Simulated assay, not measured.
Amino acid sequence: MKPHNVLVLPGWQNSGPDHWQSRWEASHGYHRVDQHDWMRPKRGDWIARLEEVLLGCDEPAVLVAHSLGCLHVAAWASHSRNTARVKAALLVAPGDAEREDMRPQLPTWSTIALQRLPFPSVLVGSRNDPYCSFERAQAFASAWGSRFVDLGNVGHINADAGLGDWPAGHALLTELLHF
């Protein structure tokens, strides 16, 4: 797989330079799917942007999603006629946009798509993620047909978790690249 066909899908507010997604981009040449508005994400805009990028890929892509990016993958897959353009997805620390405290900030992201994904996926969850309960992350994995990986107590699995380059996560991605 060519590195430019590994698509990084950050969540709400993007991923900063110390986030494992940004570090993987810098180390491996992966491609970030930039969004028009990271602060006020609109589901339809994000879906359209992912569709546009996927249509430009020269082979099926592997998606690397974090937080709202996981919901983005599910929403895109539930609407797109081009799901064969995705080989697999690594979904990390899904956010729960249906929580009462999140709905006003992410109004276009409810209802969360819960259809089985039409490609292999791994969902990595944390037991103490402040944006999604462990049980809810497991429910997402089940609904999406994803293999679930319990990472323990590492918060939102972002730069604050101190994972650095997160080699264990990259090993999961490497498995998906070889499907």
Rank of each mutant, 00 (worst) to 15 (best):
H4L: 12
H4K: 14
V6E: 06
L7K: 04
V8S: 05
P10M: 01
G11D: 01
G11F: 02
N14D: 08
G16Y: 01
P17E: 08
D18S: 12
H19V: 04
H19Q: 00
W20Q: 00
S22H: 02
R23V: 15
A26I: 09
H28I: 09
G29A: 10
G29D: 10
H31L: 15
H31Y: 13
R32H: 01
D34K: 12
D34V: 12
Q35I: 09
Q35R: 08
D37P: 07
D37I: 06
M39K: 14
R40P: 09
R43M: 13
G44V: 11
G44M: 14
D45F: 12
W46S: 01
W46I: 04
A48W: 10
R49E: 15
L50A: 10
E52P: 09
V53R: 14
L54S: 01
L55M: 13
C57M: 10
C57S: 12
C57D: 05
P60V: 07
P60A: 08
A61I: 02
A65S: 03
A65T: 04
S67V: 03
G69I: 03
V73M: 02
A75Q: 07
R81W: 10
T83N: 11
V86W: 02
V86S: 06
A88H: 08
A88M: 09
A88L: 08
A89I: 01
L90V: 05
L90P: 02
L90R: 07
L90Q: 05
L91H: 00
V92I: 14
P94Q: 04
G95T: 13
G95Q: 13
R99S: 11
E100H: 14
E100D: 15
D101W: 11
M102D: 14
P104R: 05
P104L: 07
L106T: 04
L106S: 00
L106D: 00
P107S: 09
P107F: 07
T108D: 14
W109F: 03
W109T: 03
S110P: 06
A113N: 00
L114V: 06
L114H: 05
Q115P: 04
Q115Y: 06
L117K: 00
P118H: 11
P120L: 13
P120T: 12
P120W: 12
V122P: 03
V122E: 05
V122S: 03
V122W: 02
L123P: 04
S126V: 06
R127F: 01
D129S: 08
P130R: 10
Y131L: 10
Y131N: 12
C132G: 05
C132V: 07
S133R: 12
E135K: 13
A137L: 07
Q138R: 14
A139W: 10
F140Q: 01
A143Q: 02
W144Q: 02
W144F: 06
G145L: 06
S146H: 00
F148R: 05
V149I: 15
L151P: 08
G152C: 09
V154A: 13
V154H: 14
G155I: 04
G155Q: 07
H156Y: 00
D160G: 15
D160P: 07
G162I: 09
D165S: 14
W166I: 13
A168G: 13
A168Q: 15
G169V: 07
A171D: 15
T174M: 14
L176M: 05
F179C: 14
F179L: 11
